[in-house]
Structure formats: structure tokens, C-alpha cells
Amino acid sequence: MCLAIPAEIVALHPGERALVSLDGVTKEISVALLDGVAVGDYVVVHVGHALARIDPEEARRTLDLLAEAAALTAEGAA
């Protein structure tokens, strides 16, 4: 199973690279598959590559669902 997660672009770097943030955790990724990305855009990230832009509200809903799933998993493990 593969998982792609939304993250916000916080900086653009040379060579079709960008810095993204997910809850304060930053990672440099490739944006070579997308045209015209900008700081503030939300993108779906999979194995270090931005695959698509995503609406900020949709990104937030997805991140909220992932947090809820993690909380349920933690409850089940306790």
C-alpha cells in the first residue's frame, strides 16, 4: 500500500526542488512533475515527489482524518 500526504510548500529551491512543511516537520522534495508551484501551495507528496496540487481545505480535511486514524490506533494499542 502506498500513502501520499498533503504538505505546504514553504520555500522554492533551485533544480525543481522545494521545502515542504507538515505540522512543522520540513523536508526537501522534487516538484519536477508540476508546473508553476508557489510558496503557500499544498501538494500531495509521495516518496519525495510532489504529485499534484491540492486545495488547502481538502489538505486540512485529509490531515485531520490522518490524525484521527492515528489517535484511534494509539487508543487501540493502549
Rank of each mutant, 00 (worst) to 15 (best):
I9W: 05
E75I: 12
M1F: 10
A70K: 08
V45W: 00
V43L: 04
E58R: 13
D35E: 13
L3H: 10
D41S: 02
V39E: 09
V39Y: 05
A7I: 05
L63C: 04
A38V: 06
A69W: 04
E28M: 14
V43T: 01
E58K: 12
V43R: 01
A7H: 01
A59R: 03
T62S: 06
I9N: 00
V10H: 02
V39N: 05
G76P: 07
T26F: 05
E57N: 12
E68Q: 14
A77S: 11
S30M: 06
I54L: 14
D55F: 00
G76A: 15
E75R: 15
M1N: 09
A77R: 13
E57L: 12
R17Q: 11
D41M: 03
A11G: 00
A78V: 12
G36K: 11
V31D: 00
I9H: 02
M1A: 13
I9S: 00
L72T: 11
A59P: 03
D41I: 03
E8P: 05
A74M: 14
L19Q: 13
A74P: 09
L19I: 15
L63H: 00
D23C: 09
V25C: 08
T26V: 12
I9L: 01
T62N: 05
G48V: 04
A52Y: 07
L34A: 01
S30G: 05
T26P: 03
L19H: 10
T26C: 06
H13M: 08
A11E: 10
G24H: 07
I29A: 04
H46Y: 07
A59G: 03
Y42P: 02
R17F: 02
E28P: 08
V44Q: 09
L63Y: 03
E57D: 15
A71R: 14
C2L: 12
T62D: 08
E57M: 08
M1W: 06
V47K: 05
P56A: 10
M1P: 09
A69K: 08
R17A: 08
D23H: 14
A4F: 07
L72Y: 11
G24R: 04
H13Q: 09
R53L: 12
A18V: 02
K27A: 11
A32C: 04
A67T: 09
L66Y: 10
T73E: 15
E16H: 03
